[in-house]
Write a protein that binds this DNA or RNA. Structure first.
Lengths: 227, 227
DNA sequence: TTCGGTCTTATGGTATACCATCATACAGGC
DNA sequence: GCCTGTATGATGGTATACCATAAGACCGAA
């Protein structure tokens, strides 16, 4: 019975997320995160309908979703705009990330086996490659994949969702910090330090390194836009 | 000029959040949090239309919002249901709360002035009153107001949003834990301990007390539903 | 009786129509 | 020429109509 379960599971038809709404959600989210829609831009529903080729129902539902995610802000009697980011918000987001990532990193250092470490190494290599190419978006992807592995290893799926969502809110800021000279040099080395501690299974030290890393990123961010 | 600014501000017409959508969102959220709609229940759109007296557009937008909040789950090809809560999710949520609340409590202990302490005392009194009446919902409200003050004092508005949202996902569980004999006795005293440390402006001790409090709550929760 | 096919219904996905309101522009009177 | 009242358009809020499909009921034949 159990032997059958696996092969049969392979037959299962995955639901193609082919609903217009999900596709539109993905596109809009990316448009905002990538900066194609700049903060403060009005999101006029009918215009979006034309741009995405769907009806207002779909657009409005997507906007509701993005609103709950914090990527879109509703101005009463004026409609939705791309969420703006005050420095104070960014500051708070970095703080929360520090708390959650440090916890995840510590847990990861406790349980990491060879498989996890191998995955992390792979992300690190990717990180090196992209930093040498000076590609902020590449660095961002590599960093994301590094942390995703860490959160998954510790079973922190919900925390990962939260961190991802927060990161999407500061994505533009992150790209700016990554374009900074100081960041391109110190960033990778700090992440390597985190990995080194995980590799040796030293939770406390790993968490400390993680906090330092986030704090450094926050400091650069503040120097860029801290009003 | 500046002297005029204040009196004139009083004239400002606040936008009454009178949109059907917002009202429906509030009602639905409360219905789920309060347990009126039990986890796993199908949320049939047309039925909800009748129950709330609004159109499907409104209902669907509300569902999108609640979906993003994690209170509603979408089953492909079957529609929305009230989100179910696995123990592993609850465990993670308690962990995240521990991290965020401890941080907030520590910061609060650093900056708390008399005004904040007075507010906290008020919440504590309310907590005592409700625990003596053995009113789980009252206790929940008092605890919420206690923590809200703490997060606000430290300027952690975003973290507060996150914690509130997480709490709404485990609201039923929280009520159950509060109906437990052990909880009704130890809960208030642990919160008092947190306050005592804040009052003395001892960040580290306050954070430790907070972690202990959340850990205790998680332990009781696990004893109730930990599968 | 059991299997297979077909019809019906429930229900979500999508598009569209209509209304209220705010903002802008324009016109007329002082 | 400036101020005020009115018309017009842009845009969000809400309701409704239509379609596709999945799940169940019903029915007939082997």
């Amino acid at each position: 019975m159990i032997k059958n379960a696996d092969p049969l599971a392979a037959l299962r038809i995955e639901t193609p997320p082919a609903t217009l709404r999900e596709m539109a959600l993905e596109r809009m989210r990316r448009a905002i995160i990538s900066g194609l829609f700049e903060p403060g831009t009005r999101l006029v529903e009918r215009t979006l309908c034309d741009q995405l080729g769907v009806s207002r129902s779909v657009i409005r539902e997507v906007i509701r979703h993005l609103e709950a995610e914090g990527l879109v802000e509703m101005l009463a009697k004026q409609g939705p705009i791309v969420a703006r980011l005050e420095w104070d918000d960014a500051r708070q987001i970095y703080e929360i990330r520090a708390a959650l990532e440090a916890t995840a990193v510590a847990d990861c250092a406790r349980v990491a086996d060879e498989k996890v470490k191998a995955e992390l190494r792979q992300s690190l290599d990717e990180l090196d490659r992209t930093s040498q190419q000076n590609s902020p978006l590449g660095i961002l992807d590599a960093t994301t994949s590094f942390y995703r592995t860490i959160f998954r290893a510790g079973g922190h799926t919900i925390a990962w969702d939260i961190v991802s969502r927060l990161n999407s809110r500061i994505s533009r800021l992150r790209v700016m910090t990554l374009s900074t000279p100081s960041r391109t040099t110190s960033g990778p080395s700090q992440i390597r330090e985190i990995f080194a501690r995980i590799e040796k299974n030293e939770p406390e030290a790993a968490a400390a390194a993680c906090r330092a890393h986030v704090a450094a990123a926050a400091a650069i961010a503040e120097s860029i836009i801290g009003q």
